[in-house]
Design a protein around this nucleic acid. Structure first.
Lengths: 224, 224
DNA sequence: AATGCTTTTCAATATATTTTAACCGATATT
DNA sequence: AATATCGGTTAAAATATATTGAAAAGCATT
């Protein structure tokens, strides 16, 4: 099993090193970024980041902004490093979906305890490398889908949609839920869009398309 | 819908009132306890407490101990009120499964923001995934109803109606009440509509349809 | 700018569900 | 026992929802 990756974003190299040292000792893999842009860069290129530790006070793009950008596309847990817990900041943070705060100066024990607490909460959400159900195989590493051994070409959205279905086997999914997960949270387009994608997906999956069931008045469900 | 219940445990009446006032303003129901024993008492007698706010510093049984006792039987979220964030305390707290800290003095905004953040995280876990009564099982996640193990196909309204019946076992439900809950509150259609749905539901449930009893001059009642 | 691809929107059609209305039988009241 | 009220049943009408195909919009590549 690979090490769990944690992204640390802080403009001060000293602080990054401090955090990194504690975490590395606990056998995490730490990726450093010294500003928001770099952080977003790492974040987009490495989908496997399990946790982000973010300094609030940074030049140019501050922690809130980075947080906001990350939240636009991901629910990865975020810990904020603050100099002094100001009321305004905390409130804003909770609205942005910050999971935890640590105020500087902090002790190594607190840092590690909080990181582990959060990871304990979110672990299990981790993606499997391969998924299989009813003859449909998704290989996330290779980004390939096959039905009964035959490879199937799917578009980006179709792939994401199928993944979401298979992650939630046997669970009834409303259109709203699907929109929120497969599309961005701020997407407010037509829910009928889903129908179209389901239709295409079904036709590409051939007979196996029937595994995507319609739940009248609610949405869809994937079931073997 | 009932209000969400929050248990506030603090030996100082002034502090309890302060917290209560803010929360009541936000439409929560607040239950006060002035010591650990009383808290546990309330806790055992009222299974519907959604969140506990706990002062660390209390005579006799301190917050940590109360926390420990609660954790022995429940995973209800706990917020700790601390005088000054000491390292030792925080670490201990995370091990005990404390969800959040608020250090005194705190602002109302922070209190409310954290309460709402936590409830947002944990709510939804609360609603029952499965319901059972007299051999009828409703699996809300899968949106499946089965009678004695045999799956039964229900339409949207039939499903809702059955859910409402099973949520209110043994309680006589007037047609008006059913209309208000299963249909929209502003729906003013024919009450015969219900009869029709009940009829279909009964026939689909086969012998178990008898569990939906007619109460002449009043409405219906679901009873095992 | 043109191309080819994916995604989204739209509108017509098909399908399923819900409601209504009419009738009949059951129950309570007088 | 007569009568008025209420509940059950049924089928047809009305409504809501899903599917489909095609067209439009968006996007990246050339």
């Amino acid at each position: 099993m690979d090490k769990i990756k944690i992204l640390v974003v802080d403009d001060e190299a000293r602080m990054r090193k401090l955090v990194k040292d504690f975490l590395v000792k606990k056998d995490y893999e730490v990726i450093e970024a010294e500003n928001g842009a770099q952080a977003m860069d790492y974040f987009y290129n490495d989908k496997e980041i399990a946790l982000v530790i973010l300094d609030v006070m940074m030049p140019q793009m501050d922690g809130w902004q980075v947080c906001k950008e990350i939240r636009a596309s991901s629910k990865v847990p975020i810990i904020m490093l603050t100099a002094r817990g100001e009321e305004r900041d905390e409130l804003l943070g909770f609205q942005l979906g910050v999971d935890e705060y640590i105020s500087k100066p902090f002790s190594p024990k607190i840092l590690v305890a909080r990181v582990e607490a959060i990871l304990r909460r979110t672990i299990g959400d981790e993606k499997q490398e391969k998924m299989e159900a009813g003859g449909i195989v998704i290989d996330h590493a290779a980004h390939i889908v096959s039905v009964d051994g035959e490879p199937v070409e799917l578009s980006y959205k179709e792939y994401e949609l199928l993944t979401y279905f298979m992650e939630n086997q046997g669970i009834a999914l409303s259109r709203e839920k699907i929109l929120n997960h497969v599309w961005n949270y701020d997407y407010f387009g037509d829910a009928r869009t889903i129908d179209t994608h389901v239709k295409k997906l079904r036709s590409k999956l051939k007979e196996k398309g029937e595994l995507i069931r319609t739940i009248w008045g609610l949405g869809y469900k994937f079931e073997v």
